[in-house]
Design a protein around this nucleic acid. Structure first.
Lengths: 168, 168
DNA sequence: CTATCTAGACAACCAAGTTGTCTAATTTCT
DNA sequence: AGAAATTAGACAACTTGGTTGTCTAGATAG
């Protein structure tokens, strides 16, 4: 690892960009994707959908999940998971039913409206993805994704369930 | 559903990546940068620093700022800005002093510890940036940044003061 | 010189998380 | 089989970072 700060800054050949711009670019790009997703979702009748909802519904999975397990999957406390579950119920994306085998537990399941939202999201993401490919070129987009994955994987313990804390 | 890692490791331009992976990659990359920043900051005696603090201090600027103006710069209400200001004071990154010309107003100014934190952050970001360059190549990193900027700029009204809502 | 506008404080509230305590149901262990 | 330990989920109180709404005091425009 090369960390000769004074020297390597001087004859570093390519990048004029300062280090702090990178996180800004990443966040802005993320925001732009998510904002567009929700703008489109709103146009298709899912005005109440928020970024966490899609993520949570994904964690619910096609087979449904108990509250506690949802908490584990999302990396939050079961109390927080219970609130999320209630929210998903309130906006009609999930329902609760008693667990067939465990008398303490309840199963949270996606409703068809929840499934619809997920399907729509997938479509919109694909469309955005194609638009990016059109703007910067499919090869560049591929490189971008490959590189992001490589760099992220190498450094981070980033357990994906850790993400929701960053969504609102 | 799961990424075909074996195939995408090869540099071929065959992207079967689904659209929804892109935002995940962006968020994971952002998180990895920010998490590492704060891990390093903590090692240098800034364990209380949180992502918003650096952003807010940046908005304070070298000349200082009033609470209301801080709110405007960050894109939040002045009440929220007042809370942020109090937090910055509490952890020793800023101080409040009466405004010389306006009897109603107060000026929030960075302390030397605040300046130190910013300087440290810049260093750490630069180091991370160089590490990325080492991992994926400076040309690829340059392309990545250029592309992110291009795609983001084209779509978004992304007023930068809008960002803090996404930081915790 | 009044009328309006603005800075910032205070309060009540919201949203999404946290911990801590509790009951009831299920497991596990002897 | 029965006691002990674990687990599911509810309820409550608190934290953080935001929001409105109301207020006073100082600045500014007519």
């Amino acid at each position: 690892m090369v960390v000769d700060t004074a020297k390597s800054r001087h004859d570093e050949q390519v990048t004029q960009r300062l280090g702090y711009e990178l996180p800004m670019l990443l966040l802005a790009a993320f925001r732009s994707v998510v904002d567009e997703l929700h703008a489109e979702l709103a146009l298709s009748g899912h005005e109440q959908a928020r970024p966490i909802d899609g993520f949570a519904l994904q964690a619910v999975g096609p087979a449904g999940v108990t509250i506690s397990e949802l908490g584990r999957r999302l990396g939050v406390s079961k109390q927080a998971a219970a609130k999320t579950a209630r929210r998903l119920e309130d906006i009609g994306y999930a329902t609760r039913s008693p667990h067939p085998a465990d008398g303490r537990a309840q199963v949270l399941t996606r409703t068809s409206r929840g499934e619809e939202m997920l399907a729509l999201s997938a479509e919109i993401f694909d469309r955005l993805h194609r638009r990016w490919a059109g703007q910067i070129g499919p090869d560049r987009l591929d490189a971008l994704e490959t590189d992001l994955e490589a760099v992220t994987r190498s450094t981070s313990t980033t357990w994906i369930g850790d993400l929701p804390g960053w969504l609102h």
